[in-house]
């Protein structure tokens, strides 16, 4: 008798073909682009080439990662303010804190992460507390942070301590630092994945009604996603200051759309539930590599814009098609 119930249920299920993890296309794309760059541009493998590229890619990679938890949390989650927030934090670090004599790197990291988390908390409170649609709420903070950065620092300038500037120099120590940042993120994210938060996050993004009625604190989960995204944005801001060797209030906003293109390219479902930091990082890295490749080939920056736009559209269409296909398989 026991077997007779077990069997039909199991038979109806069929063993699903091992599904490809969401991040595989993005990682393959990024690896392919690295290989392509190495072939086209011999200087890339020469000493200093890839190290420099890695350092300058880092802010974009981090911002794509910052976008990931917010998008995964569902409910139309998106953070348009990541670029301006990172820009504002770079101004805070490079234009205000460092020139006033604070040079301790751990302290600067703490300030950047704290300020980023605060910016994320503002977005999260607007979205979950006041129920402002995410795209509107973060468009509002986008404008506020942009204005604030320009107000604080109308002209480029400022400074960063040598230890930070080193990160972007392509030197051995700097490269080690860049790798350290990535390793720390991998470790921290792995730690987060081992908590219940990861499940709450994916559940809230995948089916918020199911999550809510099952007892998942959906609003707090989404709020936390914004705060985590904000903290990563803070690190990105610090690295923008490092790459610039100071601060420039105008560079932040342009990162936003590329970061969003990065998550989409990274296989993170824009409707929530599926994704992670690895895919987003690979997506962000791919976009940087495309940019790098095109500028090496001396393609005009207008064409670069077009390339970004096309890549973004292709990524989103492919992403949606993936969602659609999976939904069909489920039916």
């Amino acid at each position: 008798m026991t077997a007779s119930t077990v069997e039909p249920a199991a038979a109806r299920t069929r063993a699903p073909a091992r599904t490809v993890p969401y991040f595989v296309p993005a990682v393959v794309l990024a690896a392919g682009l690295v290989a392509l760059t190495a072939v086209v541009n011999p200087g890339f493998l020469a000493q200093g080439g890839w190290q420099l590229a890695a350092a300058s890619a880092l802010p974009l990679v981090l911002l794509a990662m910052a976008e990931a938890p917010v998008v995964m949390s569902g409910g139309g989650g998106i953070d348009l303010s990541v670029g301006p927030a990172a820009g504002l934090i770079s101004v805070l670090i490079g234009g205000i804190v460092v020139p006033r004599g604070v040079e301790s790197v751990p302290l600067l990291v703490a300030i950047a992460v704290g300020a980023g988390a605060l910016a994320g908390a503002v977005n999260g409170a607007l979205v979950t507390g006041l129920r402002v649609p995410p795209i509107i709420a973060t468009l509002g903070t986008y404008l506020v942070y942009t204005g604030l950065a320009t107000r604080l620092m109308p002209t480029p300038g400022g400074a960063v301590p040598p230890a930070l500037a080193d990160l972007a120099s392509g030197s051995a120590a700097g490269t080690a630092g860049v790798l350290l940042v990535l390793v720390l993120f991998a470790v921290a994210w792995q730690a987060v994945l081992r908590t219940a938060f990861a499940r709450n996050l994916r559940a809230s993004g995948s089916n918020d009604r199911a999550a809510y009625t099952a007892g998942v604190p959906v609003a707090w989960t989404r709020f936390t996603a914004y705060v985590i995204g904000g903290a990563i944005t803070g690190v990105a801001g610090l690295l923008i200051a490092a790459v610039l060797g100071g601060a420039d209030a105008t560079v932040g906003p342009s990162y936003t759309l590329v970061a969003i293109a990065g998550v989409a390219l990274g296989g993170v479902s824009l409707s929530g539930g599926r994704g992670g930091l690895l895919g987003a990082a690979a997506g962000g890295a791919s976009l940087f590599l495309i940019q790098n490749l095109l500028s090496f080939l001396q393609v005009s920056s207008f064409v670069l814009q077009i390339a970004y736009g096309v890549v973004l559209l292709v990524a989103i269409v492919a992403n949606g098609a993936w969602d659609h296909r999976r939904a069909r398989e489920a039916a």
């Binding site: 559940a203 999550a211 707090w220």
Partner: peptide, 23 residues
């Protein structure tokens, strides 16, 4: 009410936890 992106096991466990803490 099922979250499709999760495994069956995670769907069974869904909602039993705190924000971070597994219960």
């Amino acid at each position: 009410l099922i979250a499709d992106e999760l495994s069956v096991r995670d769907n069974v466990r869904l909602g039993g936890d705190g924000l971070f803490r597994r219960r």
